[in-house]
Amino acid sequence: MLAYRIDRRSGVATYLQIVQQTKQALRMGLLEPGDRLPTAREVVEATAINPNTVLKAYRELEREGLVEARRGLGTFVRATLGTGPADSPLRGELADWARRARTEGLERDDVAALFTSVLNEFFENEHHDTEHHKGDA
């Protein structure tokens, strides 16, 4: 069973942390279609966060077609996220790039900042998307 780790100080909205950790588990193959996500009760008992936050995260995952709620049974994984087994070409390219950055003398933080800014540039819409959804919960 998936165990969420909530970082209160990260600045990332709690429900987004759940969404991201679920997706991460899907990518890593820790969750497969048919698996049951922990119930809201199980999540909040372990993390002491608000139940509505969990439900909101699950709704978001459901909206993205990754999970489905079956009434009275729980929330189940529907699809997998196929980005990146560890040896995919994309990962290899990113690893090459990171190696180059390091030989050019960039610090870890510099690399992270660079990566985030590029990420924001290309995935701006999605970020906007989640912003929008924050309001209607």
């Binding site: 709690t14 008992e45 608000n50």
Partner: peptide, 26 residues
């Protein structure tokens, strides 16, 4: 966690006071 689990299970409305916000945030 137990309080939140109770709220999740029974839909209990909870009002908690504190003068330390971080205690309640999340």
């Amino acid at each position: 966690g137990l309080l939140m689990a109770d709220a999740a299970e029974h839909g209990t409305t909870v009002v908690m006071s504190s003068h330390i916000l971080t205690e309640l945030e999340g």
